[in-house]
Write a protein that binds this DNA or RNA. Structure first.
Lengths: 143, 143
DNA sequence: CGCAATTCAATTGCGCACAACTTATCTGGT
DNA sequence: ACCAGATAAGTTGTGCGCAATTGAATTGCG
């Protein structure tokens, strides 16, 4: 019964992959969600996103992001600055260390992808199916 | 970049599916991991697994299971009894309420599967791919 | 038999996730 | 200009998930 459930397969695979990331990210003092935040920041380049823009990208709320960003700031990778135009907003920018870290982590995705045992085509197909599921679910929530 | 990552797709899809489960399981006062524990117990029927057997089935350790089982016991769904043969072991059995709950939850998997928007064949293919990934990773960990 | 190594469950500590709430700021309508 | 409602980030509380440790019970080796 348990083994028939797609949801359990998803839950188990997600945790298994995080297990693969853990020792790799440990070398950089990061957790997986922290690494995801950095991916978004690296992608954005110059214009720093607000906390809620980060939340939209990663589908996480301020209850998760606020303390996480505080830890990234304490690690010296990120700076949080109140927007001058809108004092409610907090912009999350990279420090020099945060920018520099990107180069040191370029091969991380490849190292992880290898451990799945899937080839390129399978990985793409899996990613697309999962993305479709996620978007179907989120569309339903917004009616 | 973020959208290219299979790992993020997996992480996002897993949380999205848990979001689908949440309101459904809320009707029964359960969380998703608690529901998974009950699935194992229902499957086992008569012979109650130990905490570590549950851990093997769900790939969770005692640090997660001990407090979770305490909550299931407090909800009256489960009983924890020290094994007479080996006092280190704790056997996790269902109460009458725990057994009865199974009937009331038979349609839960179907309700959730529908929300993915995938058809039967896609669900089976996805499950098999994910199971393969999980097992590949776990085989690597044991060398 | 004796005792070191192992096994099992529980506990502690930390970092997510997420709901619910709080506080501060901004917006829009009058 | 005023203020009701909306929006942004942070805080609190609960429940995982996992590493590391603890303490009790068992096993196995000499």
């Amino acid at each position: 019964m348990l083994r028939d459930q797609v949801c359990f397969a998803l839950y188990a695979a997600s945790r298994a992959l995080t297990d693969v990331y853990r020792p790799i990210l440990d070398e950089f003092g990061l957790t997986y969600p922290q690494y995801l935040v950095l991916l978004v920041l690296w992608e954005r380049g110059d214009d720093p996103p607000t906390v809620s823009e980060l939340g939209t990208a990663l589908r996480l709320d301020s209850g998760t992001l606020s303390p996480l960003l505080k830890r990234l700031a304490a690690a010296g990778l990120v700076v949080r600055t109140r927007s001058a135009l809108d004092e409610r907003r907090v912009e999350v920018g990279l420090t020099a260390d945060g920018v520099a870290l990107r180069q040191r982590m370029t091969d991380v995705p490849l190292r992880v992808a290898c451990s799945t045992g899937l080839d390129e085509a399978e990985l793409v197909a899996l990613r697309d199916t999962l993305t479709r599921v996620t978007e179907t679910i989120h569309r339903q929530k917004e009616q």
